[in-house]
Amino acid sequence: MRRLVAACAAAALLLVGCSTPDPAPPEVVVSGEAGQPPTVTYPTPLRVSEAVHETVWEGTGPELVDGRPVLLDFWLEDASDASLVKESFTSSPTPRMLTEEDLGKDLYATLSGQKVGARLLQISPASDANASSYPTVTVLDVLPVRASGEPVAPREGMPAVTLDDSGAPSIAPTGTEPPSDLVVQPLVRGTGTQVAEGDVITVQYTGFVWSSGEAFDSTWTGGSPTTFALDDVPAWSEALVEQSVGSQVMVVVPPSYALGATQSEELAGQTIVFVIDLLATRGAATAAEPAATDAPEGE
């Protein structure tokens, strides 16, 4: 009997000794300041067997809402040799929707439950379905999709602005004659980078007709911010220079100003009110570089 027990014990020890421990997650170190391209360090080729999601630092802003827009800066490397594949820090951030359908399984899992201001790390294996696929290391900064800062009391005679839960504005017409000059009225004063002449900006905005308060154009309809060169809208080019990222600005544009892409026959002779949330600004020289700005796809 003792020999049988000893044999069983030895067999059990043998099985334990031969079992394969779970592989440790790959060691990837992310450094760098918020808003700046990260430095990512790891041994190459990086061995990745399953997706890894890590928080480099937590966000302090609003929690991301499932099915709603997110705004991302990202840095994506081929983990087989640490080469840069694409990034947005030197161009413009990328808007996406917080859905698995839009982001893919891995990226959706990385972003779910996070807050604005977070820096996140995603490590993904090569796709089994694609022979040319490679493992990837992605760093993501979660940016605001609406203005945030110190409220500023509007001057007398300006339309009152009301925001819905998402941040989309509406205005109440004043019933008075519009100003004859361009008016720039900060409603929320942000603390980010100041807009410079010729910058490429990322914004949420709505345009209203002064006389009726009716909206004629809005990014909030689809929910996602948009990016374009400041010079594309001459009135904005004058109004938004030196305004800070994070600000919400009301711009009242008399009919003597060209509205660029938003100009239409219906608006001819009308005074226009824009309510603009400034979310990012980048110099035109860097934004024009050939860095791809489509956000990385998850698996």
Rank of each mutant, 00 (worst) to 15 (best):
A79W: 08
D81H: 03
D81F: 03
D81A: 01
A82L: 02
A82E: 09
S83E: 15
L84P: 06
L84T: 05
V85K: 11
V85G: 00
E87I: 04
E87Y: 03
E87D: 07
T90N: 02
T90Q: 02
T90S: 01
T90G: 01
S92Y: 14
P93V: 00
R96Y: 10
R96S: 14
R96H: 12
L98V: 10
L98E: 14
T99V: 00
E100Q: 15
E100V: 02
E101T: 11
E101S: 10
L103W: 01
G104E: 11
K105G: 02
K105E: 10
D106E: 07
D106P: 00
D106H: 01
D106K: 00
L107P: 03
Y108I: 00
Y108S: 00
T110C: 15
Q114A: 06
V116C: 06
V116F: 05
A118T: 02
A118M: 03
Q122W: 11
Q122P: 01
I123D: 13
I123L: 04
P125V: 01
P125T: 03
A126S: 15
A129L: 15
N130W: 13
N130G: 01
A131W: 13
A131Q: 15
S132T: 08
S132D: 12
Y134T: 12
Y134G: 02
Y134S: 10
P135M: 05
V137T: 10
V139K: 00
L140Y: 07
D141L: 13
V142M: 13
P144H: 11
P144M: 13
A147Q: 06
S148I: 03
S148T: 07
G149A: 10
G149F: 02
E150V: 07
E150W: 01
V152C: 08
V152L: 13
A153L: 15
P154I: 04
E156N: 14
E156C: 08
M158V: 06
A160M: 12
A160D: 10
A160T: 12
A160H: 13
T162M: 14
L163D: 00
L163A: 06
D165W: 05
S166D: 01
S166G: 12
A168I: 04
P169S: 10
S170A: 10
S170G: 04
I171M: 09
A172M: 08
P173Y: 07
G175A: 04
P178R: 10
S180A: 13
D181P: 00
L182S: 06
L182F: 04
L182R: 09
V183F: 06
V183K: 12
